[in-house]
């Protein structure tokens, strides 16, 4: 059974049809890639998947812990449903420490009361200690544990992207959405990240959908690729299928 199913999904901004009539599905345990030229509607698609935008028509259905339709999406509920994401234009909490950024990811899994918060009762200490350990473990995976106390904005670009992924993982998602995780990274970093993504997929038993312009990354780890152009899904399939698709070649080599 697919973990996510998208039916006739469209989103228009005034006259601009940013996403139009998309049908797709992704199976559990896959790494799916979304590619397409600038302005193709990839990020808008992610925003539809995470409740930031409401669809103009069509719907998204998740089969995670339970079945959830886009009718009940709200941005803050998505991590609770098992969906976490990163942003194309890195949205870290800049003045907060790296550790605190990741701890925000743990937000949904913490639940002590207001009194414990104000008085630092034992429930506070238990829950915070547990979250701290989890956060450190995640930072270790990304080699960032020694930078845990630095303000997030002080980190180099590539590391900020990693913190964002760590933050999303802290929410213990089933489905991870990565919007251009390798943007701004050099080839070496990209290579390392590619390995890391497929490693965390197995380690945390995730399904991953990622948007990426870097073909080495996409072709390297994605089992399935969706190609967007002008809001339309113009092709999908395995990396080889997509690479040989004529429409895809046309979209990339100048449809001007």
């Amino acid at each position: 059974m697919p973990i996510i199913k998208v039916n006739n999904l469209s989103k228009a901004f005034g006259g601009v049809k940013a996403v139009s009539n998309i049908n797709m599905s992704v199976e559990a345990g896959e790494i799916a890639g979304i590619i397409g030229p600038n302005g193709a509607g990839k990020t808008t698609f992610f925003n539809l998947l995470t409740g930031i935008y409401t669809p103009t028509s069509g719907e998204v259905i998740y089969n995670l812990e339970r079945k959830i339709s886009s009718k009940s999406f709200k941005p803050y509920k998505m991590t609770g449903y098992g969906v976490a994401r990163t942003f194309q234009n890195i949205r870290l909490f800049k003045n907060m420490s790296v550790l605190d950024n990741v701890l925000i990811g743990c937000h949904n899994n913490m639940s002590y009361g207001l009194l414990s918060s104000l008085l630092h009762l034992p429930a506070f200490r238990r829950s915070e200690a547990k979250a701290y350990d989890e956060a450190i473990k995640l930072l270790d995976i990304f080699g960032l544990a020694d930078k845990k106390d630095e303000p997030a904005s002080k980190l180099p670009y590539g590391e900020q992207r990693k913190v964002e992924i760590a933050r999303a993982l802290a929410a213990k998602p089933k489905l991870l959405l990565l919007d251009e995780p390798a943007a701004g990274m050099n080839p070496n970093e990209t290579k390392e990240l590619t390995k890391l993504i497929s490693w965390i997929k197995d380690e945390f038993k995730l399904t991953i959908i990622l948007i990426e312009h870097d073909m080495s990354l996409v072709m390297g780890i994605c089992s399935k690729i969706f190609v967007f152009d002008y809001g339309n899904l113009i092709a999908s399939g395995t990396p080889t299928e997509v690479q040989n698709n004529e429409q895809v070649i046309k979209a990339y080599l100048g449809g001007e």
Partner: peptide, 9 residues
């Protein structure tokens, strides 16, 4: 960052 905060639950 309100949008990121929401996205993190």
């Amino acid at each position: 960052d309100e949008i990121a905060a929401e996205a993190m639950g």
